[in-house]
């Protein structure tokens, strides 16, 4: 991150980081807090910017970790969503069990069935779907941001897409 400008390089990443945090926390206020903490962390490490080759990948990794921490702190870890993924889909009846607060549940009921299906995917699959399908990242960039191999990225993405495809047909959305 040579000659980085916080305003010109880091701040514009805010919306992307927000979407990532939102896909993990599934809560808008919490996602904003995560993005703020992420950018503050980047700012606090300004002395090391010279050594950071890719600011976006760095910020994405920090943001993802903070979002996962936030989910854990709130007592509704990402695995509660993953359980839904493991054969416990009941979305066809509109009863997707997401361990979250009552108000969040109410607002989630207003979401489309497909959206709830997507939110019910395991965190890694949700995140990879976001980075690929919404942010338009290459497999290489996703692998770098998540600290996994490109092959693993493709495996997760394939699982996510296959699940969505199956659900589209079985629930006849």
């Amino acid at each position: 991150m040579n000659e980085i400008s916080f305003r010109n390089v880091v701040l514009p990443l805010g919306d992307r980081l927000y979407r990532l945090a939102l896909r993990i926390t599934l809560n808008k206020a919490e996602a904003e807090d995560v993005v703020q903490d992420t950018l503050l962390r980047v700012w606090e490490r300004r002395g090391e910017w010279e050594q950071i080759a890719n600011p976006e990948a760095f910020a994405t990794t920090v943001c993802r970790n903070l979002a996962l921490d936030a989910v854990k702190r709130a007592g509704r870890n990402a695995t509660s969503l993953d359980k839904v993924d493991n054969g416990q889909w009941s979305a066809a009846n509109g009863q997707l069990q997401v361990a979250s607060g009552q108000s969040e549940m109410e607002s989630r009921e207003q979401l489309s069935l497909l959206r709830r299906l997507m939110d019910g995917l395991p965190e890694a699959q949700r995140t990879i779907m976001l980075l690929r399908d919404i942010e338009g990242k290459t497999y290489k960039e996703i692998a770098a941001a998540m600290g996994i191999s490109e092959t693993q990225v493709k495996v997760y993405l394939h699982r996510a897409r296959t699940k969505i495809k199956e659900q589209i047909w079985t629930t006849n959305i």
């Binding site: 927000y18 904003e32 489309s112 959206r115 997507m118 976001l130 919404i134």
Partner: peptide
């Protein structure tokens, strides 16, 4: 749905 997600901002 993905288009809607892409339109979420701070």
């Amino acid at each position: 749905e993905e288009d809607k997600m892409a339109d979420e901002h701070l």
